[in-house]
Design a protein around this nucleic acid. Structure first.
Lengths: 199, 199
DNA sequence: GTCTATACGACGATAGAC
DNA sequence: GTCTATCGTCGTATAGAC
């Protein structure tokens, strides 16, 4: 009951968020006016400002939703897999799947420069999802799966290749859907950091 | 003579470009007004519009200078080294050195989303410098140094780790200067793609 | 909660003297 | 080539009816 009421009452809010996500990623935050959002969401200015403090508030809500969702997915992965190898591999797989199915969301999370319009925010790579990824790598080093070195270096090398493939995809320069490259990328990425002779 | 005259006459132009680079990377293109540039460069509005068509023109000049400079450096590297291994290694080294010595330039080239304010521009990873980098990798595959696979995958894996380290540096989350991580990053990056048993 | 109409400030760009 | 002063536009945000 409560849920129905709530979901009905936040319907306009959701429409605004969906529209903003699309416009922010396609045209950029600053090239998107509140009028654009009004027009394309079919929600009036008044209503938007009822749900959000200002334009920045819309972006902040969007960003925090993304980060939280990502954090939940990654925590899932940590619990579902025992080895760092399997965890990192699941992360790369998740990133590729999201890049394919929800390019706008991925674009907004990985690619957009939030700090230009969300002054309070820390850089993405300091956010909780990225910290979780580094923790996976750290644990892999402690378990003897991954060669010991600076954790930031190891993380950059395990995930860097995949992330570059995803930005290439978001820039539209990939010929095939990202999933087709998954195996290849993962082979390289793991070999970059694994203790020789394992897996 | 000509050079002296020219360099004197473009002095204001250069001051504008230097200021714009600093402001665009620190605050973002859209958070930087022409007034900001006027104030911090001590060049008047009128003079700025004498040298550049509009605000976009300033950004375009900056961007093209960067790309051209990078292209020249990479071409140097191609000529100076015989193997793909040495070429790619030199590229990573160059990127780290530039990230350290000219963070703003690096930031503007690698990290900024030009397409939001330079509508005609292709994505960075379609630019000539990135094409040169892919060509190095391609040649490495033909020479039997690098395992054969999609060239975009291999390139992403050789350079992806380094690029992530650089964005981490630009985001200010690196403890030490980037150069200190160079050896480690390169070890991982090359191992990711090299034909086993070589080097 | 949703709407329309509007206030107001900031910005990019121009005009025109020197 | 450089400057100051100013114009017109557009975008955010508010007011206030329903």
């Amino acid at each position: 009951m409560t849920r129905t009421v709530k979901s009905r009452s936040t319907n306009a809010r959701d429409k605004v968020l969906a529209t903003a996500l699309r416009l922010f990623t396609r045209k950029g935050y600053f090239n998107t006016s509140m009028r654009d959002i009004t027009r394309e969401s079919a929600v009036s200015t008044g209503s938007i400002y009822h749900y959000f403090e200002d334009k920045e508030g819309v972006a902040a809500a969007l960003y925090q939703d993304m980060i939280e969702r990502m954090r939940a997915e990654l925590q899932q992965i940590v619990q579902a897999h025992g080895t760092a190898h399997d965890q990192c591999r699941a992360v790369v797989s998740l990133l590729f799947r999201m890049a394919d199915q929800e390019p706008d969301a991925m674009n907004f999370m990985l690619y957009v420069k939030h700090r230009e319009f969300l002054p309070g925010e820390r850089p993405v790579c300091s956010s909780e999802p990225f910290e979780l990824m580094r923790a996976m790598v750290q644990r892999g080093m402690e378990r003897g799966e991954i060669e010991r070195r600076d954790v930031l270096v190891a993380s950059s090398c395990v995930f860097g290749g995949a992330i570059r493939m995803i930005t290439s995809h978001l820039d539209g320069i990939l010929e095939n859907p990202p999933g087709e490259y998954l195996e290849d990328v993962w082979t390289c990425s793991w070999r970059a950091v694994a203790v020789p002779g394992r897996h």
